[in-house]
Design a protein around this nucleic acid. Structure first.
Length: 359
DNA sequence: GCATGATCC
DNA sequence: CATGTCGATCATGCA
């Protein structure tokens, strides 16, 4: 903080976006860009990332990272430890619009993993004596569901051939052999793959991967030419959503979309993105819930000591007795893999470690 | 109690 | 023409 005050030539509350915005954009006259809803200067990561070359901005980003980790995680999680030495989160079944479960008091579904300093938090979650942590992760479940729902021949083939889907997408979009795909091309293809799931626009993709809106538009166009089944799905799902007023998952659970009849264009566009995403995210949630029930029941029926302790949307975590590691891995593998039959296989990544931190 | 901005999938 | 990727929870500032 003192470094930041030195560079600013004054003291202020770094945690106040309002004060911070004034210091950066009025006092120091940095190039201003976005404003937030209340008319102030936005100081969000994506704005500050572009001003990283200013030492003060770089220090502010670091300050933000550390203070978030300290207040929400270091401090917050310590105060959540109960008398048995454990943290007992609450899982809610009826909160999300898509069918995912959520976690509160505290939220254990957003424990840091991205940054090195954040991973230190994860490392602090350890099993009791005689136990270890075994996890099973669905690999690319949402794209596999997209391939299945859209019945897209090219995407289904990529998964059947067990290709890296982002590399495979890059090869198709850039019309080059798999082996010649560069890191940058794979990164762009990955952003398009995720964007498609969320209901993409050329503008948001351009922001995401830092290319012009025009180029982003070309990527999307090329993508949909190679995945024509996806293109047809996008058109079909929006049409049926408007006709029915809802969309549904592979298990038939509905999400109603009143947004589609809003007088406001932006709200209707939001409704279309949701129409696209809800069947995908919701079906993944359905599949995971089926798997969870089966895993829980099998652990119970076999009277194993190991127990299911966490679900993070595409991942199940089991605190596993060390004499049950292989059996638990097998239980996770077959129950997660066989919980639903898609047109593509469901791949599961298994891991075992001595904390919530993998590797 | 709302807005902003952080964390995760 | 305006808009700006899904779904969540939590801490902090501030009216």
């Amino acid at each position: 903080a003192s470094d930041i005050f030195d560079l600013a030539g004054m003291t202020f509350n770094i945690n106040s976006p309002k004060q911070l915005g004034n210091v950066l954009f009025e006092e120091l006259k940095l190039p201003k860009s976005k404003t937030n809803a209340s008319g102030g200067y936005s100081t969000s990561v994506d704005v500050l990332e572009k001003l990283k070359m200013y030492p003060i901005v770089d220090k502010i980003l670091y300050y933000r990272t550390v203070s978030k980790l300290y207040s929400t995680y270091a401090q917050g999680l310590l105060s959540a430890i109960s008398s048995d030495g454990r943290i007992h989160s609450k899982f809610k079944q009826t909160v999300t619009a898509t069918g995912r479960i959520s976690s509160t008091d505290p939220n254990l579904q957003n424990i840091p993993i991205r940054t090195e300093i954040g991973r230190k938090i994860r490392k602090a979650f350890i099993p009791e004596e005689g136990f270890t942590i075994v996890s099973g992760d669905y690999s690319q479940i949402e794209l596999r569901i997209l391939a299945h729902i859209a019945q897209d021949k090219n995407m289904i083939k990529a998964f059947l051939d067990n290709e890296d889907i982002h590399t495979s997408t890059a090869a198709k979009v850039f019309s080059i052999p798999l082996q010649e795909v560069t890191k940058e091309q794979r990164y762009a293809a990955k952003a398009v793959n995720f964007g498609i799931i969320y209901g993409i626009s050329d503008y948001s993709l351009s922001q995401d991967i830092n290319v012009s809106v025009k180029n982003a538009g070309k990527y999307i166009k090329d993508y949909l030419e190679h995945y024509s089944g996806v293109k047809e799905y996008m058109e079909r799902i929006v049409k049926t959503a408007i006709e029915n007023g809802y969309v549904k998952t592979i298990y038939g659970r509905r999400r109603y979309l009143p947004e589609l009849s809003s007088p406001k264009h932006s709200v209707r566009e939001f409704g279309k993105r949701v129409a696209l995403n809800a069947p995908i995210q919701g079906s993944a949630a359905d599949i995971m819930k089926i798997a969870m029930i089966k895993v829980y029941n099998e652990l119970k029926t076999k009277k194993l000591k190991s127990r299911l302790i966490l679900q993070v949307h595409d991942e199940l975590v089991i605190e596993t007795s060390i004499d049950e590691i292989e059996e638990v891995k097998s239980i996770l593998l077959h129950n997660m893999r066989d919980s639903f039959e898609l047109s593509v296989p469901l791949e599961i990544d298994l891991s075992q470690q001595n904390s919530l931190l993998k590797g």
